[in-house]
Design a binder for these strands. Sequence first.
DNA 1: CTTAATTGCGTCATATACTGCTCATAAAAG
DNA 2: CTTTTATGAGCAGTATATGACGCAATTAAG
Lengths: 120, 120
Amino acid sequence: MTQKIDYALASPEAIEYALGRELEKLRLSKNINQTALAEEAGVSRRTITRLENGEGTSLDTFIRVMRALGVVDRFDMLFPETGTRPIDRVRLGGKERKRARKKPKTAAGAWTWDVEPEKP
Amino acid sequence: MTQKIDYALASPEAIEYALGRELEKLRLSKNINQTALAEEAGVSRRTITRLENGEGTSLDTFIRVMRALGVVDRFDMLFPETGTRPIDRVRLGGKERKRARKKPKTAAGAWTWDVEPEKP
DNA sequence: CTTAATTGCGTCATATACTGCTCATAAAAG
DNA sequence: CTTTTATGAGCAGTATATGACGCAATTAAG
């Protein structure tokens, strides 16, 4: 039984390793070898090995392999936000904010809307 | 209205850019500036800029920023597999397969279980 | 068992990413 | 409006990732 990692608690290195292992599992479930996957993704087999073993890789390679494995659409799941909330649109007059707001000069003057709501 | 990208059809470069923009939106929704995010993630502000503008980044940086923004647990969503399917466990005698199977020598001898089922 | 296929890993040259500046410009605040 | 803050971007030096090669070790097939 392979236990699933807790991404919320793991270190970046551990997460990178875990993601590589997930990609390997996916590859094996499709019965594709590293050489074939490398060709499909447009990278070298050495890079596939490094990726699956968590030895450091680029975001580009990660994306390419997700694509080659046919699961690239799952990136959608990472950012399920519906965009700016309607209530904020009112405040901004329909415009999207392009920069972060500055912090108040007086420590006591913190804005109430400076704190993000926790996930319910 | 910012239209959402179709990850299944986009190029790796376009996907990297889109992911960067999603991270920027998330950062702005929390009213954090690049300098503060960089410190929290343990990277330089220059790297944050490059990430958000899709100018090339490492998987490590991507993970660190997801962490700093408090959404690192979403990596779970990328691999919702429940592991090896029970039916395959029977065939493997309870062991996980560690390598891809070799292709048949005779072109006519393709296995039926060589083809992965499509997503329903 | 023997044989073939797959994977891991070392090395080196090259390519790309990261950092720590700096400065210009855009956006927001006053 | 003016002033302050945030972001983009160029650059040089350093660090890391990639590709191509080979060979050893492991796993699966015959």
